[in-house]
Every structure is written in structure tokens, then in C-alpha cells.
């Protein structure tokens, strides 16, 4: 049976290619999500009523946009964004194009996780830093972010894993990757073997992200 698997060109060539595409898609989207989502999450916390700089005028609209991004099912968001994607990337096909809806879908998700992680930091620590004469920027970075870092890393791990799941849906509308392979062979051609292999690879990828994420979070956590 193993010989049969290794002879199948779909499995020996298309699956590794698709895996690489998935990793590229997830990797770039994760990077963009971290760069945009982290400050966005901190902003959400900072302008909250008990935050460092309560600003109702900012909190309301930003919260609304974030919730909007969170409430749409990813597949619908991806389709709705097709014209935007085409305008930004020049095409709506391929893993590069998939990065646009993936990032836009994951940023609000991660931002809320960051907001929650930072909110869990004991206000007493913030007060202590303020009494020492810390500026707001110092409180934000050296107290809130640093103390919440283990939780932020855990949230980022969850986000990356969600991105792997979203990437399969992005594949369905032309993004490529393992999702595309699983749908075109497994669903449209009833090729169960390819389907199963794709599932196994996805499970392995998710597991790997989880293990690495947990290890990093543990290293950072001195509680």
C-alpha cells in the first residue's frame, strides 16, 4: 500500500507544493496579523473606560469595525473582499492573493485576544509603575505587554491555527494550498487517499504550531 502512495504523483509532488503554499500563506498572513493586530488590541485596551487613555470617540468606532470583521464567516469575507484583493495584489488567485482576506479575517480575532490578555494584567502593577513616574508608553510596553506576553503568545498560537483553518477555505476560492488540493481531489474527484493525506498534513502542521507556541509561552511565563 505504501508503494501505491509513493507512486502517486499527486501525493509526491502536489502535496508538498500545496503544503509549502499553505505555510507561505499562513506565514505571511500571521506576520501581517501580528504587526497590525497587536497595536490594534493595545489600542482597544488603552481607550477603554478603565484604560490608560479612555477615549470613547475612538473606542466605539474601532470596536465596531473589529466586531464587524469578527462576525462575518470567513468564506463570505473572502468572497466579499475579492475586488479589494484584485486591486491590492493584481489577481484574486494564488497564495499571495489569499493573504489579503486571511490577514483581514485574522487581525480582529487576534486584536481581541490581545485586548483580553492585556486586560487580565493586575491594575495594581500599572498603578505601581505610574507611581514610579512611568510614562504611558512605558506602562503599555514594559508592564502591560510584557506581563501579558505569555497570554499574547498563546493568543497568537490560536490565531495561527485559525489561519490554517481559514487557509483551507481560501483555497476553495482559488487560493491554492492544502485546502484547494483537498477540495479539488477529495470533494470534486472523490479521491479519498489525497483527501486523507491532506488532512493528516494539516493535522501535523497544526500540532507543530501548537507545540511551538506552548513552548514559547512557557519560556516567557515566570508566574
Amino acid at each position: 500500500m505504501l508503494d501505491g502512495l509513493l507512486d502517486n504523483p499527486v501525493l509526491t509532488q502536489a502535496v508538498p507544493e500545496a503544503t509549502l503554499e499553505t505555510l507561505q500563506m499562513v506565514g505571511l498572513s500571521a506576520l501581517i496579523t501580528a504587526v497590525v493586530g497587536l497595536p490594534l488590541g493595545l489600542l482597544l485596551h488603552a481607550v477603554a473606560p478603565n484604560g490608560l487613555r479612555p477615549l470613547r470617540a475612538v473606542r466605539g468606532p474601532v470596536g465596531l469595525v473589529v466586531n464587524l470583521g469578527r462576525s462575518l464567516p470567513f468564506i463570505i469575507l473572502a468572497i466579499a473582499l475579492l475586488p479589494f484583493t484584485r486591486a491590492v495584489v493584481g489577481t484574486s488567485l494564488g497564495w499571495q492573493a489569499a493573504v489579503v482576506p486571511l490577514s483581514i479575517g485574522a487581525i480582529p480575532f487576534f486584536a481581541r485576544l490581545v485586548e483580553t490578555a492585556v486586560r487580565e494584567v493586575d491594575p495594581g502593577k500599572v498603578e505601581a509603575a505610574q507611581v514610579m513616574g512611568s510614562s504611558r508608553a512605558r506602562v503599555l510596553l514594559q508592564v502591560l505587554v510584557r506581563e501579558a506576553l505569555p497570554s499574547i503568545v498563546a493568543g497568537f498560537t490560536a490565531t495561527v491555527i485559525a489561519l490554517v483553518a481559514y487557509s483551507a477555505m481560501a483555497g476553495a476560492i482559488g487560493g491554492g494550498g492544502l485546502g484547494f488540493l483537498a477540495i479539488s481531489y477529495g470533494y470534486q474527484r472523490f479521491d479519498t487517499t489525497v483527501m486523507v493525506v491532506c488532512v493528516v498534513v494539516i493535522v501535523v502542521v497544526v500540532q507543530a504550531f501548537q507545540v511551538v507556541g506552548d513552548a514559547v509561552a512557557r519560556r516567557l511565563d515566570h508566574r
Binding site: 502593577k125 510584557r146 515566570h222
Partner: peptide, 12 residues
């Protein structure tokens, strides 16, 4: 200032 719950930073 010294606090009831000390408020040390756990990460440091």
C-alpha cells in the same frame, strides 16, 4: 510606594 499586594512584575 509600598502596596498591600506588592505589585511586582512577574515577568522580571
Amino acid at each position: 510606594m509600598v502596596f498591600q499586594h506588592v505589585n511586582l512584575l512577574d515577568s522580571r
